[in-house]
Design a protein around this nucleic acid. Structure first.
Lengths: 190, 190
DNA sequence: GTCTATAGCGCGATAGAC
DNA sequence: GTCTATCGCGCTATAGAC
């Protein structure tokens, strides 16, 4: 119950940063929500940016592990399908989708955060694994959309008349479909 | 040369809001870039929010006209394909893609701006036109991705080794492909 | 590990001269 | 239509007691 003030700060900050925006959320609000003062936050994190960096770093590391795994595999459709499945699972079981939504909604505000830059690079590597080096632009766009399809199902308005599981399944189905479609196109024009 | 101070403010504001973020851009920066003072901006716009609202309103109106046209047409694949083509053209020839990029990167900051809310609603209507009322979730996700594909080609890093025209064509090709794919799926399961 | 108190700054916005 | 000057605020961050 002592040291998890730190993780409670992260949890509340992630929620407020996402819902109200990073810049629009003051440390006073975060502190108030936790029943402490601003000064207490500064014991756990040196700056406001460092709070954001803390969860970006965590998720970038998780993504890196996934990428490392993929690099040990042959560059086939099967590997790509499995990569999509594993990433979809990561989104489902961890806070990953929350962090991605925070990122998506605060792109400019995080512009100068080094961990944001690191996260962008990892995402680029991830998307690169879904395409072949020589693929034309339209295939690479489609491959990016596969990843975006997985995110979109978490980002879309929660007022749809369906459960999180249904949303997750729909996103996965569309992503796999896109990977297959890119592969079919590649085979057809070989 | 007189009244176009107003449009110069809009132009500079749109660029800075997009590159640095809405909240991170101060009125002082906009004024300095134009060689005037903050007070001059207040002659043309009552508040900072009103500057953002001014270009959101303009593009929401353009999109509404497109939607009105589509509503006079039969709900067929051909109409949907033409709708996608017309929207792609709007993105290409006007400032529309700049405004959409600004929107995409400043979602939380614009949260309380009424014109942002209006824009969201218009975009929802637009995506709804691409799907049938009874379509399952995965088809609606795919339809949204068609629109996102058009945006993505403008939003993606400009450091790709290709021209704006090539990017535009790739986005259009992928978007039309998705519309066709949704229609094929609909026909197959009828 | 959390508190009170405050420094120091830049912001959006306004008043009123020209 | 643009200026100078200024107000009032809330923010990040720090100092130092407990």
């Amino acid at each position: 119950m002592r040291e998890d003030t730190r993780s409670k700060i992260q949890e509340v900050a992630l929620e407020l940063f996402t819902e109200q925006g990073y810049e629009a959320t003051s440390l006073r609000e975060i502190a108030e929500r936790l029943g402490v003062t601003k000064a207490a936050l500064y014991y756990h994190f040196k700056t406001k940016d460092e709070i954001a960096a803390s969860f970006l770093e965590d998720r970038a590391a998780a993504l890196s592990r996934l990428i490392e795994w993929a690099r040990t595999q042959p560059r086939t459709v099967e590997t790509r399908r499995e990569l999509i499945r594993r990433y979809a699972e990561e989104l489902r079981v961890s806070s990953h989708h929350k962090v991605m939504r925070f990122l998506e909604r605060n792109q400019t505000a995080l512009r100068d955060n080094p961990k944001h830059e690191a996260m962008r690079e990892v995402m680029t590597s991830f998307v690169d694994l879904l395409a072949e080096p020589g693929d034309p632009l339209h295939r690479r766009v489609k491959s990016s959309l596969a990843v975006f399809a997985l995110h979109a199902t978490w980002f879309l308005a929660k007022d749809e008349e369906c459960s999180d599981d249904e949303r997750w399944e729909a996103g996965l189905a569309v992503a796999l479909d896109l990977v297959d479609s890119v592969d079919a196109d590649r085979t057809a024009t070989r």
